[in-house]
Computed example of a mutant assay.
Amino acid sequence: MLTVNIICIGKLKEKYWVDAIKEYSKRLGAFCKFSIIELSECKTNQDPNEKQIAHILEEEGKSILSKIKPTDYTVAMCIEGKIISSEDLSKLIDDVQIDGKSTMNFVIGGSWGLSDEVKKIANYKMSMGKMTFPHQMARVMLTEQIYRGFQISSNGKYHK
Rank of each mutant, 00 (worst) to 15 (best):
E38D: 06
A20W: 01
G10L: 08
I36N: 01
A54K: 09
H55W: 13
Y24A: 10
L28V: 02
I37K: 11
S35E: 06
S25N: 14
K13P: 01
H55L: 01
Y16W: 04
K13T: 06
F34C: 02
Y16I: 06
F31P: 04
K22D: 13
K22Q: 13
K33Y: 08
G29I: 02
G29T: 04
A30P: 05
L39M: 13
T44V: 10
R27I: 00
L39Q: 04
K15S: 09
I37H: 04
A54Y: 10
F34V: 01
I7R: 00
G10M: 00
Y24K: 13
K33F: 04
N45G: 15
E14Y: 15
W17T: 04
G10Q: 07
E50M: 03
F31E: 02
I37V: 05
N49S: 09
K13G: 06
Y16F: 14
C8K: 14
Y24Q: 11
I36M: 06
K33M: 08
C42M: 05
F34G: 00
S35H: 02
A54Q: 13
E41M: 03
C32L: 01
L28F: 14
K11H: 14
A20L: 12
S25K: 09
I37G: 03
Y16E: 11
Q46T: 06
V18R: 06
L12E: 06
A20D: 09
L28N: 03
I53Q: 05
D19V: 08
K51T: 05
K15T: 07
E14W: 15
H55N: 12
L39D: 05
Q46H: 07
K11E: 06
G29M: 11
K15A: 14
Y16P: 10
K22W: 08
S25I: 02
E50L: 12
Q46N: 12
L39I: 03
K33L: 01
K33A: 04
T44Y: 08
P48C: 10
V18S: 08
K43D: 05
N49L: 04
N45I: 05
L28I: 04
L12C: 15
E41P: 08
A20S: 11
Y24N: 12
L12T: 15
F31Y: 13
Q52Y: 01
I37E: 06
L12R: 07
D47L: 05
I36R: 00
E23C: 12
K15V: 02
Q52A: 02
Q46G: 10
R27L: 00
K11Q: 15
D19I: 14
E23Y: 15
F34H: 00
L39H: 07
A30I: 06
R27H: 08
A54W: 05
L12G: 03
W17Q: 10
F31N: 03
A30R: 15
W17L: 12
N45L: 09
I36F: 00
I9D: 04
S35F: 01
I36S: 02
K51C: 04
C8E: 06
L39F: 07
W17A: 11
K26H: 11
E38F: 13
K33D: 15
L12F: 14
I37T: 02
E41C: 09
I7L: 09
F31M: 01
K11Y: 11
I37L: 15
F31R: 07
K15F: 01
D19K: 12
I9K: 11
W17E: 03
P48D: 01
D19W: 10
K26E: 12
Y16G: 12
E38M: 10
E41H: 10
V18A: 15
I37W: 02
A30G: 09
A54M: 09
L39Y: 10
W17N: 11
D47V: 10
